[in-house]
């Protein structure tokens, strides 16, 4: 491979990587806010994304609902679904046994139920394409070619992340969420309603997944198995240290770029291995993640 081509690939990889990476970053954000507050890695996150994508597809294509109504409705459905799961199922699971393993198993259960339900509707069996809401004309940036849709995806993801960080850092709700993540008992003492915060966080995480679904669906063929994109979200979260929100975002972009570069420089089939390799590399070189500071000491 000559230098010219390598440079071209590099630019293209970084550009496309930033676009898909922004979606992985959203997904990682959704995973990490749940993990930070309840120590549960949500294995249903990918299927929450998938199911939200199908809700949107159903509303758009099969109900011919206008965009301005279908998008908020999808997000609301995702929020409500995730919040409901937390409120009804996880509360009862935690009540039945104190073991965190049981909570994880329940999320695995949810992932399977959602997958099966989507298949059952009949929409999930054949691959479907999600209509692009923005034109897919190409624009050249440097030597990289990106579509207007790509730019819209990146832009929207960045705006959503900014809104999220503002909410998390500067509103009363965000403060309550942070306090629950740091010390649930103390948060409860100062009057934070733990149950409500947990439910809201799950809802929020569902809504973010729904946005990620709306962004990524036009770029993928939709199937009931598209939730496996969550592996990339997990990889992003691990790169970021798994408890750091800015880490999750940077991790998302890194994973996106690595994935695209592997696709261009190695082979498109090797893309599947990229998240695994990224996870392993991080575990070998910097197990606390790029943003995981010191290890929290358990008080005994």
């Amino acid at each position: 491979m000559d230098l010219q081509l390598a440079l071209l690939f590099l630019q293209q990889g970084v550009a496309s990587g930033l676009v898909v990476g922004s979606v992985y970053a959203l997904l990682a954000l959704a995973i990490v806010i749940i993990f930070r507050t309840s120590e549960v890695p949500n294995f249903a996150q990918g299927e929450m994304l998938m199911a939200a994508g199908y809700v949107a597809l159903y509303l758009f294509v099969f109900r011919a609902m206008p965009v301005w109504a279908a998008i908020p409705m999808t997000i609301v459905v995702a929020f409500a679904g995730a919040a409901l799961f937390r409120r009804v199922v996880l509360t009862q699971v935690a009540h039945a046994s104190g073991s965190p393993v049981n909570l994880v198993i329940a999320t695995l259960g949810l992932s399977y139920v959602l997958k099966g339900l989507v298949r059952q509707t009949g929409f999930g069996d054949t691959p479907r394409s999600f209509p692009a809401l923005v034109s897919t004309d190409s624009i050249m940036i440097g030597q990289a070619s990106v579509t207007r849709l790509d730019l819209a995806i990146l832009g929207t993801a960045v705006i959503v992340m900014a809104a999220f960080f503002w909410m998390f850092g500067y509103t009363k709700l965000g403060r309550a969420m942070r306090s629950v993540g740091m010390n649930p008992k103390a948060a409860q003492l100062v009057g934070v309603n733990l149950n409500r915060i947990h439910t809201t966080i799950w809802g929020l995480s569902g809504a973010i997944s729904a946005i990620a679904a709306l962004l990524i669906s036009p770029k993928l063929l939709m199937t009931a198995d598209m939730g496996s994109v969550v592996t990339l979200g997990f990889a992003a979260a691990i790169v970021g240290g798994f408890a750091s929100l800015p880490g999750a975002v940077v991790g998302g972009f890194i994973i996106g770029i690595v994935e695209q570069l592997v696709g261009l420089f190695v082979s498109s089939r090797a893309i599947t291995l990229a998240p695994f390799l990224a996870i392993m590399l991080v575990l070998i070189l910097r197990p606390q993640g790029l943003f995981g500071g010191r290890v929290v000491i358990k008080k005994v």
Binding site: V89, V93, I105, L108, Y112, V113, R119
Partner: peptide, 22 residues
């Protein structure tokens, strides 16, 4: 019935964790 299979596995995991964790 593969799609029922997924739903049933999932429901079993959820329901057992909720009501019969042992």
């Amino acid at each position: 019935a593969p799609s029922y299979q997924e739903i049933i596995y999932g429901l079993i995991l959820i329901i057992f964790m909720m009501f019969a964790p042992r």
